[in-house]
Design a protein around this nucleic acid. Structure first.
Lengths: 226, 226
DNA sequence: AAAATAAAAAGTGTCGACAATTTAGCTTTT
DNA sequence: AAAAGCTAAATTGTCGACACTTTTTATTTT
């Protein structure tokens, strides 16, 4: 699983470092979704004082990975189907717009970089063990690049700084929402084309379809199970 | 200026209360945009310890009202034209989607409530001193109701918990981005109609246009000044 | 006089202790 | 036996002090 997102900045303080450790523990499920967080216990685990642990918890709250109630404590967020679908709805809106902005704002260099990445993914897709690479880091790389290409700091913060932590958490723990490998690659190609053509309107439509397709894919799986 | 958003929960701890006070001070400019925040000074002002002040600062950071650098300190965010336009772009995407979801998810009661609100605004618009009411709380009320109507907790959190604090801050301090009173009212009416018709596609389009129109209004003003 | 260096002041990060609140377990009551 | 009330334990919130970093000021050097 891709561990970091492209906007993480160097962890200088100990609270930063512990934050990153707990972040990863939550994302890959070592600390279970929905579980209660005991400040004294965690502080002892990481061998820090409760104050700096609380500082770390504040950053986790900023990422929406834990929720806090006054005088009661913190819990790791739950992973539910409904929650996953909510995230897809937000992604459809935000990444669609990010894609539109990217078509206007990406530099030629950035676009070339994306094309190169796609080429690399194409070969990696064939080479590496089946589709696994493209199903994981490769897909995230693509989406991160588009988001950064928007050059809109608000979009970047919300998506990379918050939502994508949850995306990775769901991907790690649910498994059912990995990208549909074969189709996703083609869709990515067309999106890059639209960006390269500076066609923001089309780029947004394609990205929205791309994300909506994943969401519907999950909705179908759920419907079948019932 | 509408002081609170509909998702604020009761402030039980002293850090909560100080957070709210500083929030308001930043939003209406009593603490200036871009200014440095001195922890010892603020702690003395509010007569609390530095620890609980830092707790309050963490919440302000969550709202994107202050920014923090390790070992250096916190600053209130800057208000710039570019920043304002960025926010409009995000709002267009998120509120457009919220409006689409509202068309699916609002209860009949909620829709009736919105219609009643609009009627009240219509009379208030005529009565009160010109357009001022509708330019401020009235407009926010409408947008908040639509957002809540989406019944999507992620959307609600991002918009009410974060972005709208900035919206109110810009509105307070810039002034140039108040709603275009005469047109806004009609646009609101049509949006509610689309929601009542359960036409999510149209509702999204109308909301996006509504917000994009405000953004373009500002872009034009800027263009004229240069 | 300008630049570089060193010392001092101010500011942020971390710690351990105490206060206030919640939770758990026990006793009492019906 | 179930519910209510009470006591004790555990947990969270707040405080003041100390450690480390950054910034400012003063001094020296070129």
């Amino acid at each position: 699983m891709a561990l970091d997102n492209p906007t993480t900045q160097a962890a200088v303080t100990t609270a930063d470092k512990v934050f990153e450790q707990i972040l990863h523990a939550i994302v890959n499920g070592n600390i279970k979704a929905g579980s209660k967080i005991s400040e004294p216990e965690l502080a002892k685990n990481y061998q820090i004082s409760r104050s700096t642990l609380r500082e770390a918890l504040n950053r986790l709250e900023k990422c929406h990975l834990i929720e806090r109630k006054a005088n009661v404590g913190s819990r790791v967020v739950e992973c539910s189907i409904a929650g996953l679908l909510e995230i897809y709805v937000v992604r459809e809106a935000l990444e669609g717009m990010a894609c539109r902005q990217a078509a206007s704002n990406m530099t030629e260099d950035e676009i070339m970089e994306m094309k190169a990445m796609l080429k690399q993914h194409a070969s990696a897709k064939a080479l590496r063990d089946g589709v696994s690479y493209y199903q994981e880091e490769g897909d995230l790389d693509f989406h991160y690049k588009v988001i950064l290409g928007s050059h809109n700091q608000q979009l970047i913060n919300i998506l990379c700084g918050q939502l994508y932590h949850l995306v990775r958490m769901y991907r790690c723990q649910f498994g059912m929402n990995s990208p549909r490998a074969t189709k996703a690659f083609d869709e990515h190609s067309r999106i890059i084309e639209a960006i390269a053509d500076r066609d923001g309107e089309l780029a947004e439509i394609l990205m929205r379809r791309h994300i909506a397709a994943s969401r519907k894919n999950i909705e179908n799986k759920i419907a079948l199970q019932q």
